[in-house]
Computed example of a mutant assay.
Amino acid sequence: MLVREFDEADWPQVWAIVREVIQARDTFTYDPEMTEAQARPLWVEAPPGRTVVATEDGRVLGTAKMGPNRPGPGSHVSTASFMVAASARGQGVGTALFTYAVDWAKTEGYAGMQFNAVVDTNRTAVELYLRNGFQIIGTVPGAFAHPSLGRVGLHVMYREF
């Protein structure tokens, strides 16, 4: 598997993953009715951010975006988001994207990384982040409407570099 910078030709496969993930309604706060035209500028980061893909044999298995969490006085803290195709889960794709994003943020000189809205029932992601030095700073109770579990919490997670 190769994690590399997003190329315009990747968009159709990236959009398929984004659409699949947001329509599942169980891990992302994005509007499940979001159109492709709305999703593209939201997912494809402009500099100083970056969007990447994890590929194998020309197939995009997952994607990530990263950059400053906030502009101006908050721009020294990075953030990142990750999406993996359902057919590629459990194969280390998310971990590879996560590792890339953290390494990128350190190399770019960010002071830390903050995740603003990690669904508390997304155990795979929460456990990956905790194993890699992130802390749950707080949880907003009932802030995410899960399709089968009802309202669940959203974690704010942080790791200082």
Rank of each mutant, 00 (worst) to 15 (best):
T79D: 12
Y100P: 06
F115R: 05
G153A: 01
L42S: 14
P12W: 09
P32M: 07
H146Q: 07
V119F: 02
G153T: 07
A145S: 12
K106Q: 14
G72D: 09
V52K: 03
N69K: 10
F98Q: 06
G112T: 08
P71C: 13
F98C: 09
L128Y: 07
T63I: 12
D26P: 00
R19Y: 01
N116R: 07
A125K: 00
P73D: 09
G153Q: 06
L130V: 12
R4V: 05
S78W: 10
L42K: 14
P32N: 08
Q13C: 10
E127T: 14
W15S: 02
L130C: 04
V3W: 03
V60H: 02
M157Q: 06
Q114H: 11
R59I: 14
A37Y: 00
M113D: 02
A88Y: 10
I136Q: 09
R123D: 13
A46Y: 01
S75R: 12
I22P: 03
L130W: 02
D7Q: 15
R123H: 14
P141M: 06
A111G: 13
R59G: 00
G58H: 10
A86Q: 14
K65T: 07
Q38V: 08
F6M: 08
G74C: 10
A46I: 01
G67D: 04
G62K: 07
S87I: 00
V93D: 08
F161N: 10
G112E: 07
P68L: 08
D7M: 15
T29N: 10
A39H: 01
V14N: 01
A64F: 03
P48E: 07
Q38E: 15
L61H: 04
A117E: 12
H76W: 12
F82T: 15
F134L: 08
A16V: 04
V118L: 04
T29I: 13
A145L: 14
I17G: 03
L2T: 15
L130Q: 13
